[in-house]
Nucleic acid binder design. Structure first.
Length: 271
DNA sequence: AATCTTGACAACCGCCTACCT
DNA sequence: CAGGTAGGCGGTTGTCAAGAT
C-alpha cells in the first residue's frame, strides 16, 4: 500500500484565495511550520487541496518574497539564466531568493519575451547578434556589451510597474505576533567556512555560480549562500525560515514591496 | 457611458520523480 | 519490489483592472 490520498476531490474550492483563507493558512503554518501539506486542509478546515495550499504559501504568503517591480539587475539575471538554463524556472528562482519561480515565469512570459523579441529586431537593424549565453559585462570578448545594454535598457523597452492585488493589511495584522518571535535567520555560525569558501572558489573558477568580483552565490535546496571570497564571510539566505520581522513588516506594509536588495544581497553580474 | 481589448498576475492542471507503505 | 501518493515543476488558463474604441 502507498500513502493515503492527499485530499478529497469532492467539495474542493477553486479560484482566488480570500483574506480569511490566507489568515487561516498562515496561522496554521505559524503553528506547525510549512510541510506536510496533506494535513493542512483537514486540520484547518480549508476547502482547498493540499497542492493549492502549498502553492498559495510558496508563491504568495511565504515571508521573504519581494513584491513589485523587477529591477534591471534582476531582469538581466533572468535573461542571462534563461539563456543558460532554459525554462527551468525553479532553478532560475534559486538565484533570486526573493522571487518565486511562478513570478519569474510570469515576468518572462509577459515582459521579457516581448522585450527580447523587440530587442532582436533592434539588434537585427544594427547588425548585432544576441549576446552569447555566457554574456558578462566584465568579460573581455568582442561582444558589444555597451550597445546591447543600451538597447536593453532603452525607455521603450522598460518594464511597466505592477502591483500585486493582495490583502496585506489583514495578513500583516495576523502575522504581527508570529514574526516577532521568529529566529534570527540571516547569518549562520555553525557551517564549515573552509568548505564553503573552497566551494565558492571552485565555482568562481568554473564560472558555474553567479558571481561578481568577490561574492559568489551558491544556490541550495533550502537556502542560498553568498560567499565573499576575499573576507571569507559566508551569509545565508534561508528560503523557508521566516526573515526578521522588520523585513517582513517592510514587505507587508510597503505598497510596492520596497527596495530590499540591501537585505537580500544579490550577485551583480549585470552591473 | 458602454463595450471591447489587452496586459498582468494568480491559480490550476497535468506530468514527473521521490518516497512511503 | 510494486503500488500508489505527495510534492515539485512547467505550461496554461482564469480573472480582473486599465486603457482604447
Amino acid at each position: 500500500m502507498g500513502r493515503p490520498p492527499c485530499c478529497d476531490k469532492i467539495g474542493i474550492k477553486k479560484g482566488p484565495w480570500t483574506p480569511e483563507e490566507d489568515i487561516i493558512l498562515v496561522s496554521y503554518i505559524q503553528e506547525h511550520g510549512p510541510g506536510n501539506w496533506r494535513s493542512v486542509p483537514t486540520n484547518t478546515g480549508l476547502m482547498r487541496c493540499s497542492k493549492s495550499c502549498r502553492l498559495r504559501w510558496t508563491n504568495y504568503l511565504r515571508p521573504g518574497i519581494k513584491r513589485g517591480n523587477f529591477t534591471p539587475h534582476e531582469e538581466g539575471m533572468i535573461i542571462h539564466l534563461q539563456a543558460l538554463l532554459g525554462n527551468k524556472w525553479a532553478a532560475i528562482a534559486s538565484y533570486l531568493p526573493q522571487r518565486t519561480d511562478n513570478d519569474i515565469k510570469n515576468y518572462w512570459n509577459t515582459h521579457l519575451k516581448k522585450k527580447l523579441k523587440k530587442l532582436q529586431t533592434e539588434l537585427d537593424s544594427h547588425n548585432l547578434p544576441l549576446p552569447p549565453p555566457n554574456f558578462d559585462n566584465s568579460s573581455t570578448n568582442n561582444y558589444d556589451h555597451h550597445q546591447f545594454s543600451k538597447l536593453l535598457n532603452s525607455p521603450n523597452s522598460s518594464s511597466s510597474s505592477s502591483l500585486y492585488a493582495s490583502s496585506t493589511e489583514n495578513i500583516s495584522r495576523l502575522l504581527e505576533g508570529w514574526m516577532r518571535s521568529s529566529p534570527n535567520p540571516s547569518r549562520i555560525n555553525n557551517i564549515d567556512h573552509d568548505e564553503m569558501l573552497h566551494e565558492a572558489q571552485k565555482i568562481q573558477d568554473q564560472d558555474g555560480g553567479v558571481s561578481n568580483d568577490d561574492v559568489v552565490t551558491i544556490p541550495n535546496e533550502k537556502s542560498s549562500y553568498n560567499i565573499n571570497c576575499e573576507s571569507s564571510e559566508v551569509v545565508t539566505h534561508e528560503k523557508t525560515s521566516p526573515p526578521p520581522f522588520t523585513y517582513l513588516e517592510k514587505w507587508l506594509l510597503e505598497e510596492n514591496g520596497g527596495q530590499v536588495e540591501e537585505l537580500m544581497e544579490l550577485p551583480m553580474i549585470f552591473t
